[in-house]
């Protein structure tokens, strides 16, 4: 019972947190973490709303979606981290914004 309500709510909260982090946090690593929270939140909503509890007939669709989603998220995270490393090597910066101000 609690799973179908509480966990989607947790998912929504995590999603909101992720959006906030992605937009408000400056540090690139923080943004990546936030993006992952974003994903986790969505996955929780997916599984939670599917109402899959022990004993119930398992619905394979959300599971398949989440598994795909996790793989995609890891790929994106890997790309983001690789970019961050290159960016840092090139500029010594770990945020997007201050450099912009300097540029203008």
């Amino acid at each position: 019972m609690s799973t179908t309500v509480l966990y989607p709510l947790l998912g929504a909260a995590l999603f909101a947190l992720g959006v906030w982090g992605l937009l408000a946090r400056k540090h690139l690593i923080h943004k990546v973490i936030a993006a992952n929270f974003l994903g986790s939140g969505v996955f929780l909503v997916l599984i939670g709303l599917a109402g899959r509890t022990a004993g119930a007939d398992p619905d394979p669709v959300p599971l398949a979606m989440v598994l795909t989603g996790i793989v995609v998220t890891v790929a994106l995270t890997a790309l983001a981290l690789a970019l961050i490393k290159r960016y840092y090597s090139a500029t010594g910066l770990d945020t997007l914004e201050p450099a912009e101000e300097a540029e203008q």
Binding site: I29, R52, T53, A54, L63, L67, I70, V71, V74, A78
Partner: peptide, 22 residues
């Protein structure tokens, strides 16, 4: 939530691989 496959993936790549990369 009764999704061990997801747990597996999450632990292995969500926390493991991603964590290592980070």
């Amino acid at each position: 939530l009764g999704a061990p496959d997801v747990a597996l993936a999450e632990a292995a790549i969500g926390a493991g691989v991603t964590g290592a990369l980070m």
